[in-house]
Design a protein around this nucleic acid. Structure first.
Lengths: 207, 207
DNA sequence: GGACACATGTAACGGGTTACATGATTTC
DNA sequence: GAAATCATGTAACCCGTTACATGTGTCC
């Protein structure tokens, strides 16, 4: 009855595939928690307990040597909750990019600072692109975890890829644009700016 | 000294342009708080007080009729803080898209549910695209607020546009792909999936 | 003068974070 | 057998949220 968060459902999604310990979910084992839905480790520990309290996950304590270990499995009620979730309206997608905010007060800083910011954006996009590429190789070689899910996962990775390429390309062309500037003042930049606005305006027309 | 959040700096950015009341910042007047950095109204009220406590913003109380009104102006220390911020490493960009998570457990639901989810993503992207288009028109007609900032703002809007187009195009082609499926089971979808993986893998190679 | 939208806030909760704690295993 | 790292968690703070409160113009 009580509404769960998307993070709760993300965990339930993982449990639907097989039982996991909180540690496994929180660490890099589940890679989409690193990139597609990053959350702090402690939040996962808390949330999975919450799921257990609701009866959506069944904890199973065992011992590895002297250390105790708790593995959670999804329950029939948990599966039911997941199914119900799929029928609800989806949460709005969103993006956060501090670099664009910095552009709004660019004239307060230096051109070098702004270029460095954009370089950082580009580098982070490229780091994730390399990671994504290695994942795609795993699928091609048939050795990915949950290889049998490739037909749906490729659709999610498609978005992730295009999003990263978008970020990378933007950082690149914005740097190039800015490198042609003498400084960050508005002087003489109006005409070119309106040209760009016109281009954006055209592209924003729905087809 | 104490580290502010990006939201604090987003507010400081606005104050750097001119003084505002919390109400003006929180409501739709500042459009990028709606789309580029959406935050709840009450958070803005709290954060701007915080900025005042730190001496980064100067509150000026006045009366409109019988109602009191607080307008905040940036202080020299506030400007200095903004400048210092521009020199720090930028926060990582991020995206959240619940729809991709739902793909991971797609077989639990129905094809219709998934298609509806994707339609919703597409519709939301298109709504924002229409909004962005109207903004671009304002610039072209020279009547945008802060028109003189067009040369930097267009760079931010460029990213926003490409990001929205990416979301829209993805939702569209994923729907089309899925409409060719008989159901959500893996049966017979492997070959096509690996074809798509190969394409993603190729695109992910850095140039 | 009642309804309703505008303007300006406060209260309280929860989910996200960082930081810390502690025992086990491996390494050298 | 000391150090480093792995595995498993707890504590506490803070940002973001929703919900509520209340006064003020405006419309009819």
């Amino acid at each position: 009855m009580e509404p769960l968060t998307t993070t709760s459902y993300a965990i339930l999604c993982q449990l639907a595939l097989k039982p996991w310990s909180a540690y496994e979910l929180a660490e890099q084992k589940v890679r989409y928690f690193q990139y597609m839905w990053p959350r702090a480790q402690s939040g996962i520990y808390r949330e999975i307990k919450h799921l257990a309290d609701l009866g959506y996950a069944q904890p199973e304590r065992s011992n590895v040597g002297k250390r105790q270990r708790t593995v959670y499995a999804i329950t029939p009620q948990g599966l039911e909750a997941l199914r119900a979730w799929l029928a609800t309206p989806v949460a709005r997608f969103s993006m956060e990019c501090e670099a664009t905010l910095r552009l709004f007060v660019a004239p307060l800083g230096t051109k070098e600072q702004l270029l460095a910011t954009l370089e950082q954006v580009q580098a982070e996009a490229e780091e994730m692109l390399r990671f994504l590429h290695s994942i795609m190789q795993e699928y091609l070689e048939g050795r990915a975890p949950f290889q049998e899910q490739v037909y749906v996962r490729v659709l999610a990775n498609d978005l992730f890829l295009e999003y990263l390429l978008t970020m990378q390309a933007w950082a690149k062309r914005t740097r190039q644009e800015m490198m042609q500037w003498y400084d960050l003042s508005p002087d003489g930049k109006d005409e070119r700016a309106l040209e760009l606005v016109q281009r954006l305006s055209d592209r924003a027309v729905l087809t």
